[in-house]
Design a binder for these strands. Structure first.
Length: 453
DNA sequence: GCGATCAGAT
DNA sequence: CACATCTGATCGC
């Protein structure tokens, strides 16, 4: 996790660490269990260390992506065939070392397989120590391939860690029907006692993806965004080439939507192909190709695009027009305006060489509130804090999720025991230093309302 | 001298 | 545009 993660990535009170693999903060706080929600680079910090030797629980897809992970430099070398010896340098190879087979005898010395995969929606009892067990359930997180949430249940309470997730409407409805989350669903009337019968319980905490905590604007659903993008693409001449700037995992809905609508495959580089082709999503597996010739749609290496969509040599024109598709995070209103403007421009014969698609991989505040309200947990812990805010964002959380908590939540519980909270700073200095579009006012207003408690 | 970690830019 | 990624500098064993 990025710097500013509460509790150094531990989910209190369990000795379990999520998405944080750097050296433990002290010898007395050694994790008994590691969880990995997905393989984006800010969630695998410390994992490339050759000295890391603990078991990690993750999804099957995340394991595949991690073991096949190559940094850009390595991918480029491979493409230039400088690595003709077939030698590969994969960042996380040390996590799995197969046993040596010599003369029919298997030598297990030095072999290891630290990534323990669990299927989704299958509660699994995990032994952390001789005296401690927890039940861990992986749930789809709607963020990128292999991304999961963790439901951790044990004697010390039940915790849901969302990892990074996109809680759009359809997905929340889908989760509401998940039979392993069902015991934790809130009643309509918050005042009705909830855990008198032991089957109905409360989540003690939700560790929440707060990447877009200060985005109050609602964003389009992924499905709407892709549908709208496809309408724009349809307005171009039939021979137009498109480059989809899927610069990180999580834009697969765009690839799949285009492949479905235009009945074609998407050209990807061999690195992406070798991963996509092995993931559990059968549609994704089937719509990617390494052959650049047969399709108008390309999602190949960003800084080494194939000749069909390559940057033309300066001064020379390109034989066929290439239109770039860039995923962005913008709100519903702005997106509607953009769609109207761009449609008008294209219908009027204007030149457009870059398209946007309003595809967010994180949940905005309204979506977060909707998700948290579904459970009414005892507390919400932000997965990340902005170090520049010196704990101010932590203070805001309580207020931002007002009305989403269990009625037995003590207001003070939320703020207790946060080691990161900078009491010496009332936040004003942090606010002055804060940069960014409008978030300054937002944080200020939330902080102000929080103070009045 | 290497890997781990950080700052800065995209 | 954004908040994941890459690069190059710096730290530390």
């Amino acid at each position: 996790m990025p710097p500013g993660t509460p509790f150094n990535g531990f989910i209190h009170p369990y000795p379990i660490r999520v998405d944080e693999f750097s050296s433990p903060p002290s010898l007395t706080t050694v994790p008994a269990l590691h969880l990995l929600s997905h393989t984006h680079s800010d969630h695998i910090v410390g994992l490339s260390s050759k000295s890391f030797a603990s078991t990690i629980i993750c999804s099957e897809d995340a394991k595949e992506m991690l073991l096949k992970h190559e940094v850009y430099k390595e991918r480029a070398l491979k493409d230039m065939e400088l690595r003709s010896d077939g030698r590969v340098s994969r960042t996380f190879q040390h996590l799995k070392v197969s046993p040596l087979v010599i003369g029919g005898r298997t030598d297990y010395q030095g072999s290891r397989d630290l990534l323990k995969t669990l299927p989704l929606d299958k509660p699994t009892s995990i032994e952390m120590s001789e005296t401690q067990r927890v039940t861990v359930t992986l749930l789809d997180a709607n963020h990128c391939p292999g991304s999961v949430m963790f439901l951790v249940e044990g004697e010390q309470g039940s915790i849901l860690h969302t990892g990074d997730f996109r809680a759009e409407t359809w997905w929340v409805d889908y989760m509401r029907r998940n039979k392993f989350l069902e015991p934790y669903l809130a009643t309509e009337d918050a005042s009705i006692p909830h855990d008198e019968i032991s089957v109905f319980q409360k989540l003690d905490a939700i560790y929440l993806d707060t990447a877009c905590l200060f985005s109050e604007t609602e964003v389009p659903s992924k499905h709407d965004a892709v549908t709208d993008l496809i309408r724009l693409i349809s307005l171009f001449p039939g021979n137009t080439l498109f480059y989809i700037n899927s610069w990180t995992w999580g834009y697969e809905d765009v690839l799949k939507g285009i492949a479905r609508r235009f009945n074609c495959k998407i050209h990807v580089d061999s690195y992406k192909y070798n991963i996509y082709a092995r993931l559990s999503d059968p549609t994704l597996r089937a719509i990617v190709t390494e052959n650049p010739a047969g399709t108008r749609f390309h999602a190949c290496e960003r800084f080494g695009r194939c000749s069909y969509v390559a940057e033309p040599p300066s001064g020379t024109g390109q034989a066929t027009k290439v239109v770039y598709i860039n995923p962005v995070t913008i709100g519903k209103v702005k997106w509607a305006q953009y769609l109207e403007q761009t449609t008008d421009k294209l219908r009027g014969g204007g030149s457009v060489d870059c398209l946007l698609v309003a595809l967010s991989r994180h949940s905005c505040l309204p979506e977060l509130r909707n998700f948290v309200s579904m459970f009414r947990p005892r507390r919400v812990i932000p997965n990340t804090l902005d170090p520049a805010l010196h704990g101010l964002d932590w203070k805001c959380v309580n207020r931002m999720f007002e009305g989403c908590f269990s009625p037995d939540t003590d207001d003070n519980v939320q703020l207790e025991g946060n080691p990161q909270l900078d009491e010496s700073n009332d936040g004003d200095a942090a606010l002055k230093n804060l940069h960014g579009e409008g978030s300054e006012e937002l944080v200020a207003s939330w902080a102000e309302s929080g103070k009045s408690r």
